[in-house]
């Protein structure tokens, strides 16, 4: 029996989800088999943070790719990507909370206030919460496409904060955060170009009063 379009979509989504769970799976097996190197906590922090940022960047690439490759259906995977990025960011924060702060919330608050890069990371995570909460079909309908879009524009800020958070904590070798910033800026340029073009193509609006 051939699969319906809906079933196919579900299957590919599950596949994508499974692939992006591989880093987590490797961390978990590595943790229990003592294979995370000399400093497992640092490894967990780095891997979860890296993947949160990478998946976030992939999710931001969806719309430009849709335009560039005329790949309409790719948009159907954007929500999953966004949620996975949030999931990894949450894991990243949890590692910090559990192993660095030992769940001492008062200390954590002091630390967040005192360290700019941790503050930026925390703000980025905080800004992702409303995006995750309003990601359901029901919320999109309730808010209306226009309002929903407006809320979800903050994802650009989240990404920029995340890159800055990373940039700020490295000691000397900024090549990786710089690489992420380059990707982010390229995606932004692609977006702006597309917006400008669509404005040009759009019929003239009524002049402002």
């Amino acid at each position: 029996m051939p699969l319906t379009i809906k079933q196919k979509l579900l299957l590919t989504k599950m596949l994508l989800g499974a692939i992006l769970m591989v880093p987590l799976g490797m961390l978990i097996t590595g943790f229990f088999t003592d294979n995370l190197g000399a400093n497992p906590v640092e490894k967990m922090t780095h891997v979860t943070g890296d993947w949160a940022l990478r998946i976030l960047l992939i999710s931001l690439a969806v719309t430009p790719m849709q335009r560039l490759f005329k790949w309409r259906k790719i948009i159907l995977y954007r929500r999953l990507l966004g949620l996975l990025a949030f999931f990894y960011a949450l894991l990243h924060f949890s590692v910090y909370l559990i192993f660095d702060q030992e769940l001492n919330f008062a200390d954590t608050l002091t630390d967040i206030k005192k360290r700019p890069y941790i503050l930026l990371g925390t703000i980025a995570l905080g800004l992702m919460i409303p995006l995750a909460l309003t990601s359901t079909d029901r919320m999109i309908r309730r808010l209306g496409a226009k309002k929903w879009k407006k809320i979800h524009k903050s994802v650009y800020l989240v990404c920029l904060l995340a890159i800055t958070h990373y940039w700020w904590l490295v000691k000397a070798d900024i090549s990786l955060p710089a690489f992420y910033l380059l990707i982010f800026s390229s995606l932004m340029v692609l977006r702006l170009n597309a917006t400008r073009k669509s404005h040009k193509d759009a019929p003239a609006k009524t002049p402002p009063q």
Binding site: A38, N39, P40, V41, E42, F99, D100, E102, D111, K114, R115, P116, Y117, W168, L169
Partner: peptide, 19 residues
């Protein structure tokens, strides 16, 4: 005396999970 970006009050001994 903290590093401007992180605390120096605690440390993780390699081989231990908590600081």
């Amino acid at each position: 005396v903290d590093h401007p970006r992180w605390t120096q009050a605690r440390e993780r001994r390699i081989g231990e999970l908590f600081k």
